[in-house]
Design a protein around this nucleic acid. Sequence first.
DNA 1: ATTAATGCAAACACTTTGCAATGGA
DNA 2: TCCATTGCAAAGTGTTTGCATTAAT
Lengths: 139, 139
Amino acid sequence: MIITPVKKYRDTGLKLTPQRLAILDYLEGNTGHPSAEDIYRVILKKFPTISLATVYNTLDTLRLKGRVREVSIDPEKKRFDPNTKPHNHIICVKCKKVADIKETFDLGLVGNQVSDFEILGHHVEFHGICSACKSMANA
Amino acid sequence: MIITPVKKYRDTGLKLTPQRLAILDYLEGNTGHPSAEDIYRVILKKFPTISLATVYNTLDTLRLKGRVREVSIDPEKKRFDPNTKPHNHIICVKCKKVADIKETFDLGLVGNQVSDFEILGHHVEFHGICSACKSMANA
DNA sequence: ATTAATGCAAACACTTTGCAATGGA
DNA sequence: TCCATTGCAAAGTGTTTGCATTAAT
């Protein structure tokens, strides 16, 4: 069951340590946009000696290899997304849960209001209230 | 020349301290999206004893009064924007300079892909390279 | 055998908080 | 006078780094 990460990891030229495979395995298809601490807490169950520094190091290595994207939608901490294809996000303003918005938007800028910048891309962050927080408010 | 901030500040019910007026004055019409530290360094010239904590406290007070918006486009630190009207931003991926995008986008989401969320609003962050960084790269 | 990755601790950057002293209202 | 605000220091988060040990290649 950790075969898939191994396959996907082989071609990176990075060493396949058990810790990395566990992180890869946890990230695989994960749409929860976990923070480094979130990941750390999960991996800790299988690897009680793993350090938070290793999680950070691994995430940064994966980012440099283009395997993970840093999502800066949460002002409190960095969140990580294994989906590196262009897509957008929504964050719950109460509990900070982040979800994907599959829809993409072709946003052009009219005129020369940003003549100062060469535009490389864009990211839309929706904010809202998730159903869990909504029902708490109604209680 | 600090008359304008005084006028705009009167109706908040907050005490008008010289430190606050200086911060207000600096923020007034400022499109540079400064961090707390940025603001602190500027105010320090006029008020050599002001503390960074006061800057943070004042910014939070202003935020609660709706006079300032926290912009979370820079993952490293919070940036503050006195323009609380809906608008979007562009950030230079190299120097982290942030500029306003006056253009607004009426983005609707089709289908029920976010049935889990009640959408409250959205913010578009463009990323690009500013002219200063571009010319450095060409050098 | 090499060399990168781990895990610990310490350092770092940003932000918040407790509290006595100060100063606007 | 009264109470909010200041400024300092300390503490609280999140993240990075140095370095000896370990382990993947």
